[in-house]
Design a protein around this nucleic acid. Structure first.
Lengths: 175, 175
DNA sequence: GCACGTGTAAAGTGATCGTTTTACACTGCG
DNA sequence: CGCAGTGTAAAACGATCACTTTACACGTGC
């Protein structure tokens, strides 16, 4: 496996499990099986590594939601939570741990949320046949809620969100 | 003002603004205007301080939601966000930054979420006149979603959640 | 065949971390 | 008076932090 890929995967797991600040560079190099010199050659510094992890994660997420449907959206979240024991949104966590003071991290977070919103917009159009801002907002709210509620109540939270989204979409379709 | 109160208020602001790990004890003692010796006399260690901050915040939150109504619940969240620039749920953030490995912090988080759930249960009964687990789950989801979406889209997220909650409660009342 | 890119191993950088310690001042109470 | 309690100021603790440096090994391609 590519060194950079191995590094980003290891870092993502460790950041998710222990938090960003609490994960030292030693643990990262040891986990990825590379020297610290190599790590810094690849990502510059720790914030660069965090940003790289986030951007790769965003790419991976959108590859998971390829079709525009409510089921695909929440299905992706379920897969997400199944293969990684997520403790809330990793983007918001990184942003919060750095106080929003690191531009590259803040931008990665904003970009991810914007892309999520755009994708939900497409889903709404595909599901009810027209634009509906209120429904988009509400569905993003449900997605965000499921992400964080799953942290302490398990994957079942996603089902609750999916059912609520379906019900609200049905109501919008009927009106 | 009481020393302990001043310490907890200062710590809560700094933790919210910069994150838990990124806030050093020096900044805390300086912010509260006390010596480090006094700080350790009062809360034992940093994790004790974090737990104390969380438990006090939980008490304060429930004082804000005294009447059992959807408006009171989301009104409290709005007040919350207006007076403090919250970057997501402080309980989940503390839990995430410590990897869930600090018992007193994990317990404070669980207790807060359980109390929130109980309160929402009361609200559902008051609003629709009977128990409805699915509605409780969904409303907690909306609350959690609003808390985190407000971090990057502002207080308006709370209104979206409130409207969705009202609509779902109305539907439950009618059925 | 030799420079160059890419990697490792490991010591060392100064800064900052959470926490403890030492020394001293003030207050209220028996 | 004396002593316990509670506070401050400031130095010191060892550990760990992100990051750099030094020294060396291995291919690949001009």
């Amino acid at each position: 496996m590519d060194i950079r890929t191995r590094l980003l995967e290891t870092a993502e797991q460790l950041f998710d499990r222990h938090g960003f600040n609490a994960t030292g560079m030693d643990r990262l190099t040891e986990g990825a099986g590379i020297s610290s010199r190599t790590l810094y050659k690849h990502v510059g510094n720790k914030n660069g590594l965090i940003a790289a992890v986030l951007n790769e994660r965003d790419r991976r997420f959108h590859r998971l939601v390829e079709e525009d449907s409510i089921d695909a959206l929440f299905g992706a979240l379920e897969t997400w939570l199944a293969q990684e024991a997520v403790r809330g949104c990793l983007f918001l966590r990184a942003w919060g741990e750095t106080g929003g003071d690191v531009p590259e991290i803040a931008e990665a977070m904003e970009r991810h949320k914007q892309r999520l919103r755009d994708r939900i917009g497409d889903i709404v159009v595909a599901e009810i046949g027209r634009h509906d801002d209120e429904l988009v907002e509400t569905m993003q709210l449900l997605f965000e809620g499921a992400t964080h509620m799953a942290a302490y109540r398990g994957v079942a939270a996603v089902d609750v969100a999916r059912r609520a989204a379906q019900r609200l979409a049905n109501a919008a379709r009927a009106s």
